[in-house]
């Protein structure tokens, strides 16, 4: 058995990690395990968003996407890029606006990153368990950008939320992101969306994932803000 992978095989992958670590105190990230689609509760979906980019190479496109990723996101959502950028093993914090105005604080692990793609993997407590791969490639004589999500809602509450508006909101999020990305290259094209239900079954054995639900924990954190403020003022300096 080989123990020395070549650079092409090893370089783009994150090093083995059991739990995420962040130093800035962003809630719902540190100590959380990364989760694969198999670790979620809800139906498994594969959602593919694709748009044309015009005369740019896939490598140029992904370089731009890595460097400007947060700028392409819709307003009200924040991606706190790691200092080292989108690179294998880096962890990014996210603040997402949920239906009803609730702010969901969570994060992602950069699972994989090479010249033509990168993959973000979600931690426990995120609205879905799985990953999203952004890639650029040449097909039919032009360059395309693609975002592909492979996911299950993490717990029963998120599954309910995804069913009643969450999937639509996610579609809007990535359509906006790819539209803005294409506009960066002066291209105004439509984003094609393809949704496939990979597995209709729900994994009831994973219902206890709700313990980590970042939405609930973010809500409790927001509700506790006044108490933390008062305690901070009373404590001796």
């Amino acid at each position: 058995m080989s123990t020395q992978p070549d650079e092409r095989a090893a370089g783009p992958w994150a090093a083995p990690i059991d739990r995420l670590a962040m130093t800035d105190g962003h809630i719902n990230v540190s100590g959380r395990r990364p989760t694969a689609p198999m670790n979620g509760f809800g139906r498994m979906w594969q959602k593919t968003y694709r748009t044309a980019l015009g005369a740019v190479t896939p490598q140029q496109a992904i370089t731009v996407l890595k460097e400007h990723f947060p700028e392409f996101w819709p307003a009200g959502n924040r991606f706190f890029a790691p200092l080292a950028g989108i690179a294998p093993g880096e962890v990014a914090a996210l603040d997402l606006t949920m239906p009803g105005g609730l702010k969901l604080s969570t994060g992602v692990l950069v699972l994989y990153a090479d010249d033509e793609s990168f993959t973000l993997m979600t931690p426990e407590g995120h609205m879905f368990a799985g990953w999203i791969t952004f890639s650029a490639f040449t097909e039919d004589g032009q360059t395309w950008a693609q975002a592909q999500v492979l996911m299950r809602a993490s717990d029963p509450l998120y599954e309910l939320g995804m069913t009643f508006g969450g999937h639509r909101q996610e579609d809007r999020h990535w359509v906006h992101t790819l539209t803005s990305f294409a506009a960066h290259f002066g291209v105004e094209g439509e984003v094609a969306v393809e949704t496939v239900c990979v597995d209709r079954r729900r994994q009831w054995g994973r219902a206890r994932n709700i313990w980590h639900n970042a939405g609930i924990r973010s809500g409790l954190h927001m509700a506790g803000a006044p108490v933390r403020l008062v305690r901070g003022r009373r404590s001796p300096s």
């Binding site: 058995m1 080989s2 123990t3 992978p5 095989a9 090893a10 992958w13 994150a14 083995p16 990690i17 990364p34 989760t35 694969a36 198999m38 670790n39 699972l111 993997m121």
Partner: peptide, 17 residues
């Protein structure tokens, strides 16, 4: 699987299934 891809299976939790 090489040692490297065993680690990838662990990282992506494929080794659990």
């Amino acid at each position: 699987l090489t040692e490297h891809y065993r680690e990838i299976f662990e990282l992506t939790r494929l080794d659990e299934v």
